[in-house]
């Protein structure tokens, strides 16, 4: 049975992929279905859901279309989640490879820095970083990457430590390759699979961190975010709880989709490697 077919035979993984596909469709069609500024007023304020079919999910405190905000928010969540995770994985893989391959003092210094990053609560670090540099999409991505790169770095280092003793690395040394070239062309690519296996957890963590930052008012103020919508709805929590609950459900489904699809991929590739 091929990897893809095995993947499709796992109901959880299929559910994850379906959720993620729906999400990408939402994000991509946001400006097509809801052109213009999603933060502009679309109708009467605090319209409950399922009342007016031109505004299916109702409106918020300022009369903005909740469904349009939800679609545009999907964009921010996915963009930040994927970008931050990619940055964290890249930084972690490079630092872990350097530490593991160089050894000695460089390893010691890099690992103490990693320890320091793991000692400071990641969310607190992200909070401090965004508040210092100012909230924008790019800054939020960097802040999240800053608080999540340590995991990939440790995994990459452990993998590199076992790879650097292999024969092909010794061979590369003998033919006179530059150590940095060996580290990044020979060792790093082979150390990647276990690092990449972390990606679903990191994407999920990044999406949740972005939501929490926006909830505290530290998201990009020019973009709709689900965390920001939840914070908005909080002010009318007693009278219109759906304003906070709806974007929260979107968040839960997104993160769940990432976990399920990620777990499915890891499981099928693990089985495949076990068989070969």
């Amino acid at each position: 049975m091929s990897g893809l077919r095995r993947f499709l035979h796992t109901p959880e993984a299929v559910a994850g992929v379906v959720i993620l596909a729906a999400l990408f469709a939402m994000a991509l069609s946001a400006s097509l279905l809801f052109p213009g500024d999603p933060q502009s007023i679309a109708g009467p304020a605090l319209l409950p859901p399922f009342q007016d079919w031109s505004l299916p999910l109702g409106t918020d405190r300022l009369g903005r279309n909740v469904l349009a905000e939800l679609f545009h928010g999907a964009r921010t969540s996915l963009a930040v989640g994927l970008a931050a995770a990619a940055a964290a994985l890249a930084v972690g893989a490079v630092i872990g490879t350097l530490a593991g391959f160089a050894g000695g003092l460089i390893d010691e210094v890099l690992m103490r820095i990693t320890d320091a990053f793991q000692t400071v609560p990641g969310f607190l670090l992200a909070l401090a970083f965004v508040s210092v540099v100012g909230p924008s999409l790019g800054v939020v991505v960097v802040a999240i990457a800053l608080s999540t790169w340590t995991g990939p770095a440790r995994v990459a280092r452990a993998e590199v430590l076992s790879i650097r003793e292999r024969d092909y690395v010794a061979g590369a040394r003998v033919i006179g390759m530059h150590p940095l070239a060996i580290a990044f062309r020979e060792v790093l690519p082979n150390a990647l699979p276990p690092v990449l296996a972390l990606s679903s957890v990191i994407v999920a963590a990044a999406i949740l961190t972005e939501a929490a930052l926006s909830f505290l008012g530290l998201g990009d103020p020019n973009r709709v975010t689900w965390g920001g919508m939840i914070a908005e709805g909080r002010t009318v929590l007693r009278t219109a709880p759906f304003l906070s609950i709806v974007p929260g459900i979107a968040l839960v489904l997104t993160v769940l989709g990432v976990y399920l699809a990620g777990e499915g991929i890891v499981e099928t590739t693990a089985v495949k490697r076990g068989l070969s």
């Binding site: 949740l208 909830f215 906070s244 839960v252 993160v255 976990y259």
Partner: peptide
């Protein structure tokens, strides 16, 4: 196993708001 995965996907601050809506409001 599935239930715990779903729970793990819930943002803490949102769970807090939902609990407030149910148990306090």
């Amino acid at each position: 196993s599935i239930g715990s995965l779903a729970l793990y996907a819930v943002p803490g601050f949102w769970l807090g708001l939902v609990l407030i809506v149910i148990f306090a409001v």
